[in-house]
């Protein structure tokens, strides 16, 4: 089930990144919101892994090159603007994808139907903040523009075909672009115009090619589990 694995890795890695915000959020209400999103994603990852094998073996005992998540989700949190640009780009991809999967008769359908409801809220939350940061103060506008532009090159990868994934990448991409264009415009932000795929790394995450920060993230995530082989927790 390479499709399930890819989606599970997306969800786990993004959940982990959001978990890094705990204790650092700009306002208490947002601590609670970010944790809710992280917990939804972790739940999705666990359900998806269960279709493939043992969740902890998959999460803790694979090497970096065996992970199939897109590079977008492994990008470091940066400031609040980077985190929400990442949320916006990713949720706007995940929602139509899960909706499409929910309509198929694949193994993923029931799970996708449940997850789509969660992601609908994630996307809503991301739009809410994109508007406020984009059309807030001069500083927030500049930061949000910078974040949207910086992460732009990781968005093409979202629509590379994934083996076994019953969804039309071209249709997803078209919907995604309409969505993003609309939100950024309302937020008084400019749609970035750079390439949406990195040069050598086209489609990389799905093939197990990641960015440097990912290795460090995994080292931290897996260290304790790997230090006690065979232990139960």
């Amino acid at each position: 089930m390479s499709a399930a694995l890819a989606l599970a890795d997306d969800a786990l890695v993004l959940s982990h990144r959001l978990g890094e915000w705990a204790g650092h959020a700009p306002v208490l209400e947002e601590e609670v919101a970010l944790a809710n999103i992280a917990l939804d994603l972790l739940g999705q990852a666990r359900s998806l892994y269960s279709l493939v094998g043992d969740e902890d073996e998959l999460a803790y005992l694979r090497e970096e090159r065996a992970f199939r998540n897109v590079q977008l989700v492994e990008q470091p949190n940066g400031d609040f603007a980077h985190t929400f640009a990442r949320q916006l780009y990713f949720s706007a991809y995940q929602l139509p994808l899960y909706r499409a999967l929910a309509a198929t008769d694949s193994d993923l359908a029931p799970l996708a139907a449940k997850a789509a409801k969660e992601v609908e809220y994630h996307l809503d939350h991301a739009r809410t903040w994109t508007l406020r940061l984009g059309d807030g103060t001069e500083e927030s506008h500049a930061r949000m523009q910078r974040a949207c532009t910086a992460l732009w090159k990781f968005t093409g990868e979202l629509f590379q075909p994934v083996e076994g994934l019953e969804a039309d990448p071209a249709a997803l991409e078209a919907e995604w672009l309409v969505d993003i264009r609309e939100v950024l415009e309302r937020a008084t932000l400019t749609l970035p115009d750079g390439p949406r795929l990195g040069g050598w790394a086209a489609g990389a995450g799905r093939q197990g090619l990641h960015t440097e920060p990912f290795g460090r993230m995994l080292a931290e995530m897996q260290h304790l589990h790997r230090s006690h082989p065979g232990a139960t927790w």
Partner: peptide, 20 residues
């Protein structure tokens, strides 16, 4: 109660805080 800059965020924060 909670703090929020506007009604939209107040509603979302309320959802996250009081109905989780």
């Amino acid at each position: 109660s909670l703090h929020a800059p506007d009604a939209e965020l107040a509603l979302r924060n309320a959802r996250d805080l009081y109905t989780r």
